[in-house]
Design a protein around this nucleic acid. Structure first.
Lengths: 351, 351
DNA sequence: CTGAAAGCGCTTACAG
DNA sequence: CTGAAAGCGCTTACAG
């Protein structure tokens, strides 16, 4: 484990104007310049003015590395690792997180694990070397609690986002997945559907189990049967949605409604329906999960379970701040409310 | 301009195991530990082994801040500022950039300007304070060359991505926009369309002008008329696409084909067509630009101009490395090839 | 209000 | 191969 080196950069190219240069330029001491930078009250307005002008004149740029080193502090970086940078739902969350973080004066470093354990580990190490103030992490399937524990023991606070590591005792912010799919399935049952499938998700992540559980709750409650082929897990993608629809219909042609693990999966289902000559909203009812911005523009517009990405971002940042301030704070787990958004992709069964 | 402070973090919480601790633990000097970390050949394998083991045993984490400070070097960070974190095309580019950067041992810091000048400026300053090795920037509309010049003069190399600041002399990697819309328009003309509109884009960014120029080239060449209402600029979004289609059709009902500034705009056009009872591919031909992953799954599948996001990422990183190594390198501007991808959203005019 | 001094965690010649 | 020493750009008491 020798250190990862960036490209062989011979020397710092920066102009390297230091606080010392500013002091000399203005004719004060380094201390004074530093004090001005921290908005200390013990500097006269006149001096402050002169220093500020001097900074502009010679083009000084504050050096956070040096300051943080001296102060034994983090320099306002935060590590955020999600599954993908180019998946629509992550994109919306990153967008929200960025705003909340920047408003708090901290700079987020976004990265994607690509659902790969080694990649996640590599990123965690790099971020620790960069001395981030903390981590917001959507754990890769297969992440053990010992991995998270290592981060924690190194003194870095961490909050899990969207998913949770099994048996771990770490803070987390997750959607009320079970309530979401329960509501979705109830909705379909209320419309008269009896043969309802659940497609998408992978068995090694926590939200899958919660979402399936919500579906099962509703099905059991209504005494509807769920033969094994009614639940079809498969990793997230539009293509997977296409494949999944085919699979469940092959298994039982009576299936008239599909609860999808996510909107993305539902898009695939919509696409395959078109290909198979099935009219969604009439021949087939489809429910998604996430309520992506696109979901009101699909054809037909998608009924789905909404979880606010703004809630996700705000809660995650709040928790992270809590643990940065007090590493001994009692474990907190936030469950975000969900709402069923009814649009046009569902209808009564045709039979 | 006093310094932006992150939340008031009282003290570094990190365990703070230093290189010194490792040295003591193993029973060697600090120099030796440092040498091991750099993979120096002047350490015996046996010593190296012991040091490496010691590092694991006491849980030491390398401190890049300190190292970079000492070496007068950047510590392997790169600033990437795009227009949005949650727009599909940016998402794909970030994804590619991340891979290329990480492979080169450098950690990208992604942020979005939200197309706002102050936000862009704030981010640039923060990243300079963090001493990034360089910038990859998609300039906000209205960015002047003096803004970029300031970055450059502070010693930070920069490459423009996707868009260019007018009158600037800075490296850039852009798509061959003009060739793209030219090909798209030629395609429509070849199918027999005579009344072809161009929708989307904003007049204060370079790619808009290039794309309109390509459209005009083809129209002029075919001696087709372009009354002023045929070109309808409007900032990017699906909703804007919906609005734009209505606007051009109101202007001239004979319009039978639309060249869109982007796939995103085209999605809006598709959506509004459905609402107006217009069958795309028969009553109306639509061409996009970007070839997003979704574009083969729209209904009908979208004919569009493809630019490889991998090319974008690779070229941008190559250029950035070039300028990091040699700030005096001659100005380079890379124009990426485009290809027209023909799918089902176009057809001959009906009249 | 100012200046001298110490120290954050590293790296890098340099003398042994 | 090792150890002592200097220094990166800051901040922070402390004495004036």
């Amino acid at each position: 484990m020798s250190i990862v080196r960036p490209w062989n950069v011979p020397n710092q190219n920066h102009k390297r104007v230091t606080l010392h240069d500013v002091a000399r330029h203005v004719g004060v001491s380094k201390s004074t310049v530093s004090l001005v930078l921290q908005d200390s009250p013990s500097v006269s307005d006149k001096t402050r003015e002169r220093v500020l002008r001097g900074i502009d004149e010679i083009g000084y740029v504050y050096n956070r590395k040096a300051a943080a080193l001296r102060q034994h502090q983090q320099d306002g970086l935060m590590g955020v690792i999600v599954n993908g940078l180019n998946t629509p739902y992550s994109g919306e969350i990153l967008n929200q997180l960025e705003q909340v973080a920047l408003a708090g004066g901290i700079v987020p470093m976004f990265a994607s694990s690509g659902e790969r354990l080694e990649q996640q580990e590599k990123l965690v190490r790099l971020y620790m070397e960069h001395k981030v103030a903390g981590f917001i992490l959507c754990p890769v399937p297969g992440t053990t609690s010992s991995v998270l524990d290592k981060i924690w023991r190194n003194g870095f606070p961490l909050v899990q986002l969207m998913r949770e590591v099994p048996f771990g005792q770490f803070p987390a912010v997750v959607a009320d997945n079970r309530a979401g799919t329960y509501a979705a399935t109830r909705h379909l049952i209320g419309l008269g559907h009896k043969h309802i499938a659940f497609v998408g998700g992978r068995e090694d992540i926590s939200d899958y189990h919660e979402r399936v559980a919500g579906y099962r709750d509703a099905m059991n409650e209504a005494r509807l049967s769920m033969p094994s082929g009614y639940v079809y897990p498969i990793p997230q993608s539009r293509a997977a949605g296409r494949q999944a629809l085919k699979a469940v219909l092959d298994y039982d042609a009576r299936i008239s409604a599909v609860v999808c693990f996510s909107d993305l999966m539902a898009y695939g289902v919509l696409s395959m329906s078109r290909e198979l000559g099935i009219t969604v909203g009439r021949d087939l009812a489809v429910v998604g999960f996430d309520d992506l911005v696109d979901s009101r523009l699909t054809y037909p517009a998608l009924t789905t379970v909404r979880v606010s990405t703004a809630d996700f971002a705000r809660s995650a940042m709040e928790l992270l701040q809590l643990y940065i301030r007090d590493q001994q704070a009692p474990l907190e787990r936030r469950v975000l409310p969900v709402t069923l958004v009814t649009r046009e992709s569902c209808g009564a069964p045709q039979s």
